[in-house]
């Protein structure tokens, strides 16, 4: 019984730590997705689109 409840505590602790890691991983990723997209990206895409239109 004692053994079992300790096991359950360990388990809960592990799950909490993993949840924290998961939250922070998403935070690192979202820090980038929430940045404004540099204009260079959209300009490059427009240029690529324009030059493919000319070829057609």
């Amino acid at each position: 019984m004692d053994h079992q409840s300790r096991g359950a505590d360990d388990d809960r602790g592990r799950k909490l730590r993993q949840k924290r890691i998961g939250d922070q991983l998403r935070r690192l990723y979202d820090e980038v997705t929430e940045e404004a997209v540099p204009e260079e990206f959209l300009n490059l895409l427009e240029q690529a689109d324009n030059s493919s239109k000319k070829q057609k």
């Binding site: 990723y29 979202d30 980038v32 997705t33 929430e34 940045e35 997209v37 990206f41 959209l42 895409l45």
Partner: peptide, 9 residues
């Protein structure tokens, strides 16, 4: 274009 944020991340 909508995927650019994810490509960057």
């Amino acid at each position: 274009a909508g995927l650019i944020p994810h490509l960057r991340a």
